[in-house]
């Protein structure tokens, strides 16, 4: 197997006296889909934002494609080939759907400093190809500000793909979506990840999504990893049941039984 895309070692962060994340280590391989789950306040978002460069870490190292990311800002980490979607979508409401993708493409090609020439005519075909990939080709001309929430999530995925990322970071990619949309979006993500051998790390509260699509699951509780492994291993782990999944429901149990 080739070198891992993401190597996280002993990552820690505390806010005042609260240890939000302590000593988290894991790796992620190309084409692998890894879920990070845990109860509210477990440190998932803190972890994510440290990987992304949005907040600094206290100790530990993060390597992306073998490169140390200490001190890099989010925009520099993006240049390494990392795509990102947000828990609460962040798009440009004053632009059309296609323009949203075009801005990212212009940035990827380092053309945003140009002071003339009509930007709306640049990288049009490539933007449409990416929109087609997430099934939004016919929404390209729509103002982004009037999209339904599920469509915004798909748009974010298209934007995340513009720099041909090797790593995708998705913070609750299906939050706020209808059940049918959730499955569709994750299936799409999985297909793209496998085809382009992108490593995907995502957090999620919907266990149907997690257990159906993740190759591997890590469970975070109070800042520490308490379990990790295949969906089947995690499902039957008594610690995980105690702190998060609970005893009653056994997700995807029939399939495993």
């Amino acid at each position: 197997m080739s070198a891992p895309i993401l190597e996280v070692e002993k990552l820690s962060k505390s806010y005042g006296g609260v240890h939000a994340v302590r000593g988290v280590s894991f790796t992620l391989a190309a084409g692998e889909i890894l879920a990070l789950i845990g109860p509210n306040g477990a440190g998932k978002s803190t972890c994510f934002n440290m990987l992304n460069g949005q907040i600094g870490r206290d100790t530990g190292s993060v390597k992306i494609l073998g490169r140390d990311t200490t001190g890099l800002r989010p925009r520099e980490i993006w240049r390494l080939g990392v795509g990102r979607t947000f828990q609460i979508t962040a798009t440009y409401p004053s632009m059309t759907v296609r323009e949203n993708v075009q801005v990212a493409l212009l940035s990827h090609h380092r053309e945003l400093g140009r002071l003339f020439g009509f930007a709306g005519a640049r990288h049009r075909a490539e933007a449409d190809r990416l929109l087609g990939l997430v099934g939004m080709r016919d929404l390209a001309e729509r103002p982004c500000g009037e999209l339904a929430y599920g469509d915004l999530k798909r748009l974010e995925l298209a934007i995340a793909l513009v720099n041909e990322p090797k790593l995708l970071l998705m913070d609750e990619p299906t939050a706020g979506m209808a059940p049918r949309e959730r499955v569709a979006l994750m299936r799409l993500t999985a297909t793209i990840a496998r085809e382009q051998s992108i490593g995907v790390l995502f957090t999620e509260h919907d266990m149907d999504v997690v257990f159906e699509h993740a190759d591997r699951i890590m469970v975070l509780n109070r800042g520490s990893l308490i379990a990790g492994g295949t969906p089947a291993e995690v499902r039957n782990n008594p610690d995980v049941k105690a702190v998060y999944l609970g005893e009653g429901s056994v997700y995807g149990g029939e399939a495993a039984a």
């Binding site: 992304n52 800002r73 993006w78 409401p93 075009q102």
Partner: peptide, 17 residues
């Protein structure tokens, strides 16, 4: 477009470089 992008969403703009 870059300028409008920073106006519309600082978070997204940082995330796309």
């Amino acid at each position: 477009y870059a300028l409008r992008a920073t106006r519309d969403s600082a978070l997204r703009s940082e995330a796309i470089g």
